[in-house]
Design a protein around this nucleic acid. Structure first.
Lengths: 198, 198
DNA sequence: GTCTATACAACGATAGAC
DNA sequence: GTCTATCGTTGTATAGAC
């Protein structure tokens, strides 16, 4: 009785990406990142698990897409470390600004709204940030207390986003990337590699 | 024909404070801080302008109350500058944590929600922060580019609040004040008095 | 009778008109 | 430069709650 799905390209109209994102949103929200499985999500969406790789580059990408975060975690890390660890601070600021300026500030504001409004969204963002971005970045840098360093880094980056995209406080809202990178870069650099006086 | 209001204590039930806050919320929202006058607000509330001073300590206090910000601006400044300008960074972090830990993180989250959701709230917060807290603090310190310094300081403080009270990312969410003051204090100190490499 | 929330009057500062 | 209107704030007397 198990109807075998036909191979090959499907008839158009079945939006595989959308179906996957919807199924993933439910699954991640209900079970968290670890417990939600790609196979289960693909099953709910009625598509092959390989589609996750094809469309989102893997489980991480699907998670980011489900959270409506226009960021590929790997790109953030790579962008920050380009130029060596002694420039990671400035580079991270530049990468952050590039990503969100391109996306449009409204998306950031929307993310903040959902995080501030729903405990569930906060939990998912917590998991996302911890696991993919700042924790990994701190470990990549190779310093002590990577969780604290990552969280401190996150606090400054989120604060930057709040000022630039949500509160729109001048002169941060309109400042060019160079100015902000030079002003905030050293803060991130210290959080990542400096002496944070534990 | 002008009916002179009776002096003396009013019959109970007439809540002057609430009436003032409601009138102030409307007035500040409609006209901004400068254009809204104490006299007009008191008039709308049907009470004497002197009540603003009596209940809120002045126009600033009424504004803070209308914004539901449990912070007396003057206290922030005073708390940060206690100990001299070379310790203003650490002190500001400590004062910030003391105020919001006492209030309860939920209030901070609510403020973020309203700011992220309503452009009007963002505008008022912008005005509040610019005028009363960071701008004044930066000028009090006496450095160049006070607006940029104030905005940078604000970005780190707001980010700290987001991590501790909204996202609740560990280890920031549970860290003691000393740890955070030592970790973040130098950032604020540099923003306020250091070389921000313009 | 005491306490306090209140109204009224007046002050110094400030901004704009002329 | 002066005059005026209006602002935020302060001092003080009083009426009513307790």
């Amino acid at each position: 009785m198990t109807e075998t799905r036909r191979r090959g390209r499907r008839p158009s109209g079945a939006d595989t990406k959308t179906a996957l994102i919807e199924a993933a949103t439910e699954a991640f929200a209900a079970q968290g990142y670890d417990k939600a499985t790609v196979r289960d999500i693909a099953g709910r969406a009625g598509v092959d698990p390989a589609m996750v790789n094809h469309w989102f580059g893997g489980k991480e990408g699907l998670f980011a897409a489900a959270m409506q975060i226009p960021v590929n975690p790997a790109e953030i890390i790579e962008g920050a470390l380009r130029g060596g660890r002694e420039h990671a601070g400035e580079q991270l600021v530049r990468t952050f600004l590039h990503v969100w300026d391109t996306t449009g500030g409204g998306v950031f504001a929307g993310l903040v709204r959902s995080v501030a409004g729903h405990e569930l969204a906060a939990k998912l963002l917590r998991e996302f940030v911890t696991r993919f971005i700042f924790g990994r970045l701190a470990k990549e840098i190779g310093a002590d207390r990577p969780e604290l360093r990552g969280a401190l880094t996150g606090s400054q980056m989120v604060g930057l986003g709040m000022m630039r995209y949500v509160v729109k406080l001048e002169p941060i809202a309109s400042a060019d990337h160079d100015t902000l990178a030079r002003a905030i870069g050293p803060t991130i650099q210290r959080y990542l590699t400096g002496d944070i006086d534990i």
